[in-house]
């Protein structure tokens, strides 16, 4: 039996291109890169694409250049999670596809292949991110004991974040809980006076939650005149920053920490 979804027609093409769009959007590509890549894929299939891409949904019209037939579909984008391997592979595939004039089936198979790639194992993420937390403590002038506290606090905060992600919690709730957990551990360092500058460990333990990719993409979109997307990304990043600080404030109020001056 022939797999119907691999046959080249305008309906299957638009499904594939929407898949590419939503894959890149969730993985943390900026809007210009998404539009460029999708246009290249459309060019390979001898189609013309026009897309309106927003944070949660995409509207795309495809025009077949031979028959002038057109097709428009609106689709929802699933939850975001930064994945630069996907951004890199899809971008690369769009260039190679243009240069080698890939067939629809080849394109389809390549995208499925990219989608099925595995992430780094969770334990590796946990260890490297915690080391990054310790590194931040060193950069901001902490000593080795502060780094140890920052490491443990990041480790626990990140585990909480992963667990909340597993239970599909709201993003901002997840960040709030993770920030609370990390600050809780780091404030124990302040209460027991571990190291010379225990407040540095508190300041750096929550840095893994900072939405760096979101904020940088936001500025990138603004520079490239995708102003609306830029604003959306900025606001969503800003709410995450608020959630982080709220988590920290909660713990400070509970422990009545008074570390400023």
């Amino acid at each position: 039996m022939i797999d119907m979804s691999k046959e080249k027609n305008i309906r299957n093409s638009i499904d594939l291109l929407l898949d590419v769009c939503s894959l890149m959007m969730t993985s943390g590509a900026n809007t210009k890169r998404i539009i460029d890549s999708v246009n290249r894929f459309a060019q390979v299939l001898n189609l013309k694409s026009h897309a309106l891409i927003s944070h949660k949904s995409i509207i795309m019209t495809l025009i077949d250049l031979e028959t002038n037939e057109s097709y428009t579909v609106v689709t929802q984008i699933p939850r975001h999670g930064v994945n630069y391997s996907i951004v890199s592979d899809v971008s690369r595939a769009s260039w190679v596809a243009v240069n080698h004039q890939w067939s629809f089936e080849k394109l389809y198979n390549r995208i499925q292949e990219i989608k099925s790639q595995k992430r780094y194992p969770v334990w590796l993420e946990l260890i490297t991110v915690s080391l990054a937390g310790a590194g931040f403590a060193r950069i901001f002038g902490g000593d080795y004991l502060n780094m140890l506290v920052a490491f443990i606090a990041t480790f626990i905060g990140f585990s909480v974040s992963k667990t909340a992600h597993h239970y599909k919690a709201n993003t901002y709730v997840r960040v709030y809980l993770a920030s609370m957990a990390a600050s809780l551990v780091a404030s124990l360092g302040i209460l027991y006076g571990i190291g010379q500058h225990p407040d540095i460990a508190l300041a750096t333990a929550i840095l893994f939650l900072v939405p760096g990719v979101q904020l940088i993409n936001s500025f990138n979109d603004l520079y490239n005149n995708h102003i609306l997307n830029g604003i959306v990304r900025f606001v969503s990043g800003f709410i995450i920053v608020l959630a982080i600080s709220l988590g920290m404030l909660t713990i400070m109020l509970i422990f009545k920490l008074n570390v400023l001056g």
Binding site: V82, Y84, T128, S130, F208
Partner: peptide
């Protein structure tokens, strides 16, 4: 660490 978190190649 952040590279691993962002799943770089």
């Amino acid at each position: 660490g952040f590279g691993i978190l962002f799943n770089i190649p």
